[in-house]
Structures are given as structure tokens and as C-alpha cells.
């Protein structure tokens, strides 16, 4: 399962990077959302999967799944929510001010300063 999930995370990253490299700012944001999903899965996989019970203390259970990656991913999930929201609003405001959603057209011009 670990190998399969590692490959799956790789596929998710591939899709995410492809989206991020495109010109439409909407696709870029969706790409970052996808990238964070991939990262969360990746961290989980690297910690090892299903090595024991859920990390909640129960009498008679000795083997638990590694809780540390889970804690890290939990933090990451919430942070990525904040970042995605920020990104969304940034894109929205940029569209309002500049009238375009094409990242290439948003390129700054040195002659402005």
C-alpha cells in the first residue's frame, strides 16, 4: 500500500504542478489546493501506514499508528486552508483591479517605477 500511495502522491503532485504552471490564476489556485492534498498524503505515507491502531489510548493496545505525522498534517491542513483563502482573495482583488485573470498579463513593468 505504501508504494501505491507514494505513486498516488506523485500523480497528485504532477497534476498540481501542471495546474500551477498554467496561465489562468484560477487554475493556479486550484493547483495549490491540490498540491497541499498531495503533501498531506505524502507526509502520511512517509510515516508508514497502518502500523497499529488509531493513536488514541485504549487499554490492551500496544501498537499505535505514528501520531507525529498526523499532528503535523493536522497543522498543515489548517494552514493550507488559510493560505488558500488568502490566495483566493488575492486573485479576486487582482482581477478586480487589473481586469484580467491571466498571470502573464499581470507581469509588472519596470518602467512604472
Amino acid at each position: 500500500m505504501e508504494i501505491i500511495m507514494a505513486i498516488a502522491a506523485g500523480v497528485l503532485v504532477t497534476c498540481a504542478v501542471y495546474l500551477i504552471l498554467s496561465k489562468s490564476i484560477l487554475r493556479i489556485i486550484i493547483g495549490t489546493g491540490l498540491l497541499s492534498h498531495a503533501a498531506h498524503l505524502l507526509v502520511m505515507v512517509m510515516g508508514g501506514l497502518k502500523t497499529g491502531d488509531a493513536p488514541v489510548i485504549k487499554d490492551g493496545v500496544t501498537a499505535y499508528t505514528d501520531p507525529l505525522p498526523q499532528a503535523l498534517v493536522l497543522t498543515a491542513i489548517v494552514i493550507s486552508f488559510g493560505v488558500t483563502a488568502f490566495f483566493l482573495v488575492l486573485a479576486y482583488r487582482a482581477y478586480q483591479e487589473l481586469g484580467t485573470d491571466n498571470i502573464e498579463e499581470m507581469k509588472g513593468n519596470d518602467s512604472y517605477d
Binding site: 502522491a9 506523485g10 504532477t14 497534476c15 504542478v17 501542471y18 505524502l42 512517509m46
Partner: peptide, 12 residues
């Protein structure tokens, strides 16, 4: 993107 994805898989 395929290169990046492959790298990530290998690292994992």
C-alpha cells in the same frame, strides 16, 4: 510536472 511528481515519489 511529471519530473516533479516522479521526484516526489522517489523521495517518499
Amino acid at each position: 510536472s511529471i519530473l516533479v511528481g516522479a521526484t516526489v515519489t522517489l523521495v517518499a
